[in-house]
């Protein structure tokens, strides 16, 4: 089985790896690049635990071949905090206790980031539908949605100088 040389950008840094043709982006991130923040909950795109952002689009990394990432920009949970500072979404998830076991949290945070990148002022309903691809079995979503809406408000505040 000949391997494919893939050149990408991961969290802003150049990243190269060798992928078998059938390898998913999730396996490449976890096994080739050591980025285990994205989780496999189902392997079929039904839980969202493996969510990453590729060229600005939220995707399930289990539903994408590693080879498809050639030349693309991949953002993972490991790149969300910047310069030792948590992203407001991460901070709000902690303040609102929006996680219990934490397994779905990296995927939910990537989903929430994609939401707020495209819609800075989502309604509760918009947030719920946008994040419907991220299963959480612990929280019942209540605190997750509150954290996302609160982070959205804070980010809007940051953008609008007082």
């Amino acid at each position: 089985m000949s391997k494919i040389h893939v050149t990408t950008t991961v969290n802003g840094d150049p990243a190269e790896f060798l992928a078998t043709p059938g390898m998913t982006l999730l396996d490449a991130l976890r096994d080739e690049l050591g980025l285990t923040g994205a989780k496999e909950g189902c392997g079929s795109g039904d839980c969202g635990a493996c969510s990453v952002i590729v060229d600005g689009r939220l995707v399930c990394s289990c539903l994408m071949l590693a080879a498809e990432a050639e030349g693309q920009r991949v953002e993972t949970i490991e790149g969300m905090a910047q310069n030792g500072q948590l992203h407001p979404l991460q901070q709000k998830f902690l303040e609102h206790a929006a996680l219990q076991c934490g397994f779905c949290t990296p995927g939910l945070l990537m989903g929430a980031k994609a939401l707020l990148d495209s819609n800075p002022d989502p309604t509760e309903t918009e947030a719920r539908y946008f994040l419907a691809g991220n299963l959480c079995r612990c929280t019942g979503y209540d605190k997750v949605i509150r954290a996302v809406l609160d982070a959205a408000a804070e980010l809007r505040q940051e953008r609008t100088p007082a």
Binding site: T36, G37, P106
Partner: peptide, 19 residues
């Protein structure tokens, strides 16, 4: 208060069974 293992769990550092 914020949970003591919080930062690890929002940054992807927390290591689960398959990690």
């Amino acid at each position: 208060p914020i949970r003591p293992d919080g930062a690890d769990k929002v940054t992807g550092r927390a290591a689960y069974g398959a990690d």
